[in-house]
């Protein structure tokens, strides 16, 4: 039996070790904020933080994580107070919202340690798909959250 730490809580996992972390989070642990979009690590809807770094969870297993703590959108803050969550609301970013957990977690990298990202930085890092097309508002929200 292996253990998986998600949002500070440790779970004993008995599932097949080949099960992608996405499905352990969603269907075994029951945290549904992390989404399935493509299953091939292309769209980014399943983005989580592994040891603080954004990773797409649909193609990584427990072995890939190697005990590192996982943060999902539910664990980003206790009360939606993370600067990105606040900026996402202030700019009314989400439409359908299905990609937004992944987008927000992806964006954490851009503002970590007081970084002020440029538009070019945002273009490179924010490579998740948003079918609704909220890109312009996401860009504005990231700049706001960074205080830039």
């Amino acid at each position: 039996m292996a253990s998986l730490t998600v949002n500070g809580q440790t779970y004993q996992i008995q599932s097949d070790p080949s099960t992608p972390v996405l499905w352990l989070i969603r269907d075994v642990i029951g945290l549904k904020g992390t989404k399935y979009g493509c299953g091939i690590s292309v769209c980014g809807a399943c983005t989580i933080l592994v040891g603080g770094t954004p990773q797409r969870s649909c193609q990584i297993t427990m072995a890939d994580i190697n005990g590192a703590p996982v943060t999902t959108i539910e664990g980003l803050s206790a009360d939606s107070s993370h600067p990105l969550q606040q900026a996402w609301i202030a700019h009314q970013v989400p439409q359908c919202g299905f990609c937004q957990s992944g987008q927000i977690l992806r964006a954490t990298q851009l503002i970590a340690n007081g970084k002020i990202p440029s538009d070019a930085d945002i273009n490179v890092t924010m490579n998740n798909i948003c079918v609704c097309g909220t890109y312009t508002r996401m860009r504005a929200a990231i700049h706001s959250a960074a205080g830039g």
């Binding site: 945290l31 989404k35 539910e74 009314q92 919202g97």
Partner: peptide
Amino acid sequence: PRPELPAKVNGTAVYGSD
């Protein structure tokens, strides 16, 4: 502001597949 947005930034929005 949209009333359903807070749930869409903290993972608590429940879609059909959730």
